[in-house]
Design a protein around this nucleic acid. Sequence first.
DNA 1: TCTCAAGATACTTGCATCCA
DNA 2: TGGATGCAAGTATCTTGAGA
Length: 288
Amino acid sequence: MRNRLPASDPLLRLQASITVRDDQLLGWLYDHGVLTTDQIAEALFPSLDFAQRRLRRLTLLQATDRFRPNRAYGGSYPYHYVLDQLGYHHVHAQRGLAAPRRDQARRRKQSLTSRRDLPHLLGANQVFIDLAAHARTHPHTSLDRWQPASAFHSPGVWYRVGDDPRMMSRGPTGLPRPDGAGVWTDHGRTVPFFLEYDTGAESLDVLVEKVGKYDRLYSMTTWAWPVLFHLPSARREANLHHRLAAIAPEATIATTSAELRAVLGVSPAEPVWQLGGTARRLRLVDLP
DNA sequence: TCTCAAGATACTTGCATCCA
DNA sequence: TGGATGCAAGTATCTTGAGA
C-alpha cells in the first residue's frame, strides 16, 4: 500500500504517488527526451485510455510536461511528453545523482521542442518502444537495456578492456554515432545491438559512410555488435544492400524497413532483419 | 473577406467492474 | 476502500470548404 498522507511539498507528494511503472517512464524520459502518448501507452500500459489518465496525473504532479504539435492539414499530433522539473529531481534521487539545475527541465524542453530532427528522435525511440511493447505481451522476452544516442558522444566511450589504449582518449570523430543501442533477450538468448534509424532524408552515400565507421570501430576494438539499419522503404533497403555488396563490410549489418513491418504488422523482435547476401529474414535474437 | 459547419485527431470524463 | 481497467460519450482545437 502506498503512502496516501497529503504532502504539502510537491516533491513529497510526487514520491508518495509514484509507481514502479512511473519510475520506468520517468527514467526513459530522462534518457531519451520525448515520447508520445501512443508510444508510452504501447510500451507500458494495457490500454491507451488508462495511459492517458496516468499521464495526466503525472503532469498535474509536475513530474512530466507535454506539448502538442498541430498537423499541417488539420487536427493535431498526440501529446509529446517530456520530463518536468520534479521529474528530474525524482530521477536524480533514484540514481543517486546531485540535485538537477533549477532550470534543467526548462532548458531540455526548449531544446526538444525546437529541434528540427524531432521526427527522427521519435522514430528511433519507436523501435525500442516496439521492443518494449513486444516484451510486455510476450513472456520470456525483455528489453534489458536501452541506451540513447547521447551515450556514445563522449571521448573514450568506445574503449573496453583489451582495446588499443589510444581509444581511451579518442572522441567519436571517425567513429560511429548510433541513434541508440540495446540488449534484447528472448527465451534466455541475448543479443546486443546498435540502431541506425533512417528517415530517408540522407543520401545512401551517408549510410555507406556510417557503415565504414562501424568497420573502423570493429577493426580497432573488440566491439562486434550487429548494427540494425531501420529504413523507411523496401526500395531504399534493397538499394542499400546493393551498395554494401560492393564494399563487403566487416561489421554485421542487418536491415529492415518500416514498409515491411507495416505490411506484416510485426515488432522488430520478429523475423524482419535481413543480412547482406541472404534473402531470409531473421529474428532480432537470431542475429550473429 | 468573413462566417460557420464539417471533418480530423486526440484528450477528458463518467460510469461500471474487478481485485487485493 | 482505492487502484486498475474498459467502454462510451463528450470536449477541444485545428484546417478546409462552401456560401453570403
